[in-house]
Design a protein around this nucleic acid. Structure first.
Ligand SMILES: [Zn+2]
Ligand SMILES: [Zn+2]
Ligand SMILES: [Zn+2]
Ligand SMILES: [Zn+2]
Lengths: 152, 152
DNA sequence: AATATAAATGTTATATTATAACATATATGT
DNA sequence: ACATATATGTTATAATATAACATTTATATT
């Protein structure tokens, strides 16, 4: 299977999951929201809000910053995408249905981001928080570096 | 010892370490850089770039955005402060001389940030990166939540 | 000391990222 | 049909950050 095909099916899979999640939670995946989610998945790596806005304008010339940011907020709130804080960028979540504490491997060279979940991470968060009597609510864990592909 | 005193000594300690580090590395802790580092430590929690600029303007009316961002860059490059990516904010590093991979406990209520280092974190980063054949270079690990003080 | 070079700071302008506030349209429940 | 809530449209502006170039200050070389 070629990379582009793999990518395509991941994208279709994500869209399908998004529909399911919205259906079963009484959320409306409107045309706009679907368009934006599609645009996010069309990009091979991460995507910036204003690049997304430019893309959206091609099919909806009336789109403006609040259009995109409100839609991104909806998608984030419902776990369909993530914001990468160290880049001010966004990326589709490949497993919005089974969300554990995740972290991101961010390639400096090719803009690919791999989302990973590891029990180790949540263990570390719990234990270290406990040491400081801190009640964690939101974890940001981003690792920048060089991916497997770009090493060759 | 009162909290304000503890804070004061942490600040003085940090400034002293900064001088040492710059001395022994051929870096110049200029008047401007010292002023900004002082302003950062004067705040009890994290500080935003433009708030810092406003403070700096009180003693140096000619200060402008590049003044503050360039100084922040210098301080970051040399490990004297950290940027909190999830807040676009900055905080002094309490141990710029012995820098391991660190993470931050960020209180949503009082803006206090505790910087912690744990061998566990670096272990998790290494092992999970290895799993993905990823070479990590920069780690962002920020945990938002509620601190011990604010729970009472 | 005079000169060249590099590093730091000053200055103007602008790019990038994000939200407030209010108007209109669309969907949903009674 | 009406009331209410949700979503979108629209204008304006806030907040964050950098590019580009000028000037000053420190450092090294002659
Ligand atoms: Zn996810
Ligand atoms: Zn790569
Ligand atoms: Zn530190
Ligand atoms: Zn607190």
């Amino acid at each position: 299977m070629k990379k582009s095909q793999k990518k395509l099916s991941a994208s279709l899979e994500a869209l399908k999951k998004a529909e399911q999640i919205c259906d079963s939670n009484g959320l409306k995946l409107t045309k706009l929201r679907k368009q934006v989610l599609n645009l996010i998945w069309k990009k091979s790596g991460y995507v910036k809000a204003y690049d997304l806005l430019d893309e959206l304008k091609k099919v909806d010339p009336s789109a403006k910053p609040p259009t995109i940011y409100r839609t991104l907020d909806f998608l984030m709130e419902n776990g369909l995408i993530h914001k990468i804080q160290s880049l001010n960028a966004f990326i589709g979540c490949p497993h919005p249905d089974e969300h554990n504490e995740c972290y991101f491997l961010i390639c400096d060279r090719c803009q690919m981001i791999e989302e990973c979940c590891s029990k180790k991470i949540s263990n570390v968060v719990s234990s270290t928080s406990k040491n400081s009597n801190f009640i964690p609510s939101k974890v940001t864990f981003e690792i920048a570096g060089t991916c497997q592909n770009c090493l060759n």
